[in-house]
Design a protein around this nucleic acid. Structure first.
Lengths: 253, 253
DNA sequence: CGATAACTTGATGTGACTCAACTTAAGTGG
DNA sequence: CCACTTAAGTTGAGTCACATCAAGTTATCG
């Protein structure tokens, strides 16, 4: 929060905004977007910083431009669980509520397109078409969260690890992430072991064991701690316990 | 589906509709509601019937009037996980999508206020105020699903069982469910052990053991398989691993 | 290059799943 | 209305995946 650099946002149909074609903004007219760009600002947060603390009044909302934001819930006993990960073009923040039930934290260095919540709420009230897009996006998100809940609940740790690896691989193939030539089977997982473990509902130790087991079985290859090569995608799918179709659907949500 | 009886819906500000003050309809004007009542029908489904199958085209949406509907995902290996429970006044159905990712099944005998999905979608497009209420409701639902995901993931089975019992008790206290004098600590859980287990992400056997352990410790008393008395709510809260405030918040979502 | 954090590997205990038998409740038809 | 059948729930014994605690190894950063 303290370290946040502030620039004026470059959104708009002129194509400057890097996430324009994927974010909800895309439903608006040229004029709507100009209005949006007046109330939005680009902000950078270093890895580990808290964008919005759990239970605190929430004043800002917006879209992720670059990096990964984790949405987590910390319980009384201190251990926290990651209930969602937000990627570029995803919307963050809790609209129409006094405070956020979850904390938003920068899992990597992130750049956000931020807006004041009251401003954006007023904008939505005046632009039902965009509010409609927001509703559709939230319905998709609801499906995705439930789907992920079903996965983390009924499956073994190895199945969850395999699912995560495959889904991240598919996503980076689709989105041509930096440093990943399309077609290659290189996966970037820009999260710490602890974050991945919290997301999968396990511990760093168990996670590490599973990753190493996959590596020993030549299913994946550890390039670095956060970078893997998929040597045997078919086996990874088998290990996930899901059908290929299901995995691909999850990857596109 | 086959057994569904059909009546005309009694919604409207005349107060006939039993869930009127809690369902999204309440945001509409008298005229809006008359329009809604023209496109809606009361329908009854016997326990166990499938209202909407997973992956099938979804044509109907609406509100639960009476009973409990389970929202579940069945995986390839056959075991299914309940990702949500819907109670009276809750909205069911998947708007703005060709097919539903989950199945809607009657966990008890249910009565639904149903509408054709295309009709209701058209209605929403013409009534931004109601669509706005729908968005707010879905944002709350999203928080609730994530909250529940955090609970089922980081906690022991006993903690989940205690949480469920306490939350259901609070809900029935709030809603004056049939047969529950307000102030009494009687809980109705209108679900089979299997359904509860699927919802909590465990097995009927483990669930049963935990219930019996709580009964032996005089924390609860088994009146029947689906009816309990809370003898020691404070201990139940302790067993849940949550704070009282958190539990109460969950109960009101 | 030293200090600190992140990750991996090992040993051990246990919560919960599985398989199986038993008990109770709920239907069903004579 | 009661024997009969079938489903639902409970209890028991055995096993295993995973968490925990602890030590070692590899990154990361000032």
């Amino acid at each position: 929060m303290s370290q946040a650099a502030e620039l004026s946002c470059v959104c708009g149909k002129n194509g400057h905004c890097v996430i324009y074609n994927r974010a909800i903004c895309s439903a608006g007219t040229q004029e709507d977007l100009q209005q949006l760009s007046r109330i939005s600002h680009l902000r950078s947060y270093p890895r580990g910083s808290v964008i919005q603390a759990q239970g605190e009044p929430c004043d800002i909302v917006g879209n992720i431009v670059e990096g990964v934001v984790k949405l987590s819930s910390t319980s009384v006993n201190g251990d926290d669980h990651i209930v969602g990960l937000l990627f570029p073009s995803d919307f963050f923040g809790r609209l129409f509520a006094e405070e956020s039930r979850f904390s938003y934290e920068a899992a990597t260095d992130v750049t956000l397109c931020t807006m004041s919540k009251p401003h954006f709420e007023r904008f939505l009230a005046e632009h039902p078409v965009i509010e409609h897009e927001m509703l559709k996006a939230k319905l998709d998100e609801l499906d995705a969260v439930r789907e992920w809940a079903a996965i983390t609940n009924g499956h073994t740790t190895m199945q969850r690890v395999a699912t995560l690896l495959y889904v991240f691989a598919r996503r980076s193939q689709n989105q041509h992430l930096r440093g990943c030539p399309p077609g290659s089977n290189i996966v970037q997982i820009p999260l710490s072991r602890r974050d991945i473990a919290d997301y999968l509902g396990t511990t760093p130790e168990t996670l590490s064991r599973n990753i190493q087991t996959l590596a020993r079985a030549k299913v994946i290859r550890n390039i670095s701690a956060k970078q893997f090569e998929l040597l045997n995608p078919a086996e990874l799918i088998r290990q996930s316990g899901e059908t290929r179709a299901d995995l691909d659907r999850i990857a596109t949500i």
